[in-house]
Design a protein around this nucleic acid. Structure first.
Lengths: 250, 250
DNA sequence: CAGTGGTCTAGACCACGCT
DNA sequence: GCGTGGTCTAGACCACTGA
């Protein structure tokens, strides 16, 4: 009653997963279509329930499918937001009284929820960059079309921003960069460090991420023209919701 | 013989995974340390084998642990390569007769294997950007410390590069960009589009990726000063091996 | 309320590693 | 050779969805 005497070169669950993946990538199954469920696979291939689940879990962990309780497993879609890096910042958008974030959704409205502003002691890396552990922290979450897509944590040197609108929930027109300019600390140069990894549990919850979805982590440091760092901004993006764009000269 | 009468708010396998994750993230378990195996978990928590496996699979799919057959499950490490985007290209490295890739490993030697140069018909998106489907394609794989870290596919308009060293395996000093300059098509502006996703099976094989490792995909388009696209380069990076850096002015 | 996915048990045989 | 993870079976109870 065990598997076939000669072990097939690839396990059954993988071959099933391969077939389903092929159907998805070839377009035979489209966005939102329903995949054959556990019972269907059991019947079709004569396998046990755990094996059918294993096949489906492959696609789920690859981010190609999403399970819905009591309903089925469905093909997942990819319709990203375009986030402009260098171009966006280099065309003076924030200088014209607009928040940077304006351009990022390219027409799609975004909302900010869960704004928190606190005075904290920064961890080592942040403290090293900002010249001390004494910081104000702005945490917020962005949503597009009602779905959370980004977590953002900004750190400012406490001595610089104390008593300014930067430590208020509403920073006023133009956002924190306009306020920094008024303080004589206008950001002039940016460094963005980008990596990708699987999300931590709290990120999975806050961004409502299905299995198989990586996050993109951007650490952005803003410097004045004199080279003084005035902000470190850690952004965690739902990788399935974003394309980053950087334009630059040779 | 089923689970406890009142369902615990979080499943057992999750609570076990949470505990192990905590131990990893807090540093209690360090890079390369061995996690408790399936048998250990079964004994410690009084659970069935499949449940212990499920707990471990959570960490493996999060990229925090790697299973080794016949040995155990181990804590995974993260020691990335720094890849410079805008800074690297804007400081004239390739203009001084060096390939762009020089700076990317910051001292660590890299190797190129599996170079393939072919004439092909490009897919729609590439053809649209390059002004036609007739292209030469350079495919290669890069390794650092003997481990593959990046796949790269470059597309060039056939009419531009036909008969030049660009269609040879060895492109000569300075690489393809020096050759393009000699053709009067020096790249002057770049656009990089960056996204992250879980790897496709062939990427998993070619980059030797453990489960739970996303890939970073960079689509880079090189334009001449006149704005003519002369190259589209699709790079697929092992996300656990890279940090991308972009520097730019406001 | 029938069907779906989520969790769990208690077994089995296998390939592989390390000693 | 023994322990490890990899694959698989045949059941079970549960929460949830949707007609």
């Amino acid at each position: 009653m065990q598997q076939s005497p000669v072990p097939p070169e690839t396990p059954i669950y993988r071959r099933i997963a391969d077939g389903l993946r092929e159907a998805i990538l070839s377009g035979e199954l489209r966005d939102g279509d329903r995949l054959p469920g556990e019972n269907a696979l059991m019947a079709q291939y004569g396998i046990a329930r755990a094996t059918a689940r294993q096949a489906l879990s492959v696609l789920i962990n690859e981010g190609l499918a999403v399970p819905r309780r009591g309903s089925g497993v469905y093909v997942r879609q990819f319709r990203p937001i375009r986030r402009h890096g260098s171009r966006r910042l280099s065309h003076g958008h924030w200088g014209r009284g607009r928040a940077i974030w304006d351009a990022d959704t390219e027409g799609r409205p975004y909302t900010v929820d869960e704004v928190h502003v606190d005075r904290e002691t920064a961890e080592e890396e942040i403290a090293r960059v900002l010249g001390g552990p004494d910081v104000w922290v702005r945490r917020r979450r962005y949503s597009v079309d009602g779905r959370p897509v980004q977590l953002s944590v900004s750190y400012f040197p406490a001595g610089l921003v104390e008593g300014t609108p930067i430590v208020a929930e509403d920073t006023g027109p133009g956002g924190v960069y306009a306020r920094l300019r008024e303080l004589g600390s206008a950001p002039a140069r940016f460094t963005e460090e980008v990596r990708a990894r699987m999300p931590h549990p709290h990120e999975t919850v806050q961004l409502d991420l299905p299995a198989g979805t990586p996050v993109i982590v951007i650490m952005r440091t803003a410097h004045t023209a004199e080279g003084t760092p005035v902000e470190v901004n850690e952004m965690v993006l739902d990788a399935a919701s974003y394309v980053l764009q950087y334009d630059f000269d040779a």
